[in-house]
């Protein structure tokens, strides 16, 4: 039951993009086409799940054990960078087509604050290993949901008659704000 709560909480109620405003850069930058947005979302979900699986042992068995938990930022950033590198190598080897489709977005996940935020929240909320992995996967799912919804709206916007000062990023940010308001409707769905 607690795992389901963590999942729904991270994916909907406390959606990283629309509630904590983390990972706005790819949310705005890669949301112009549904296909790209979905690929980006899936890659991020994958990295987030792996991040949770790797950073939890690092935190518990290295940082806490040697009593240096203040090094979490440095340790997490190193681990995330290495992970993204690994994922990039793997995708390049296994699926050149996907590698080309993801292009620059793959290395960009390294600097995605949502991934670091995930690792930090995981520590802050004192999740255990399984909960952390569920949390990582749910956060990625929430990110994918938000970015795909955004890209769907933006594809329709291509045909809308937008006043000149609002075109491009401006209208995207306004829509992001509206989506964030809509997601506030999930607040109070459940506690936790």
């Amino acid at each position: 039951m607690k795992l389901i709560m963590i999942f729904i909480s991270a994916a909907l109620i406390n959606n990283f993009v629309l509630t904590y405003f983390l990972g706005i850069c790819p949310f705005v930058g890669v949301s112009n086409k549904i296909e790209n947005a979905l690929n980006m979302g899936l890659a991020t979900t994958f990295v987030m799940t792996l991040t949770a699986a790797v950073t939890w042992p690092i935190y518990t068995y290295i940082l806490v054990r040697f009593n240096v938990p203040f090094l979490e930022y440095v340790a997490f950033i190193i681990a995330i960078a290495a992970l993204v590198q690994l994922v990039e190598m793997y995708i390049r080897k296994s699926s050149p087509a996907l590698y080309r489709a993801l292009g620059i977005y793959l290395p960009l996940i390294t600097t995605n604050c949502a991934v670091l935020g995930l690792a930090l929240f995981m520590v802050l909320r004192e999740y255990n290993f399984v909960e952390s992995i569920i949390f990582g996967f749910a956060t990625g799912a929430g990110f994918t949901l938000a970015i795909v919804m955004m890209s769907g709206i933006r594809e329709e916007l291509e045909f809308a008659d937008i006043p000149k000062p609002f075109q491009g990023i401006s209208v995207t940010l306004i829509i992001a704000g509206m989506m964030a308001l809509a997601f506030m409707g999930f607040a109070g769905l459940m506690r936790g």
């Binding site: 290295i62 040697f66 240096v68 090094l71």
Partner: peptide
């Protein structure tokens, strides 16, 4: 400890 753990990682 910090140097060793980070360097080791």
């Amino acid at each position: 400890v910090s140097a060793v753990s980070m360097g080791g990682l």
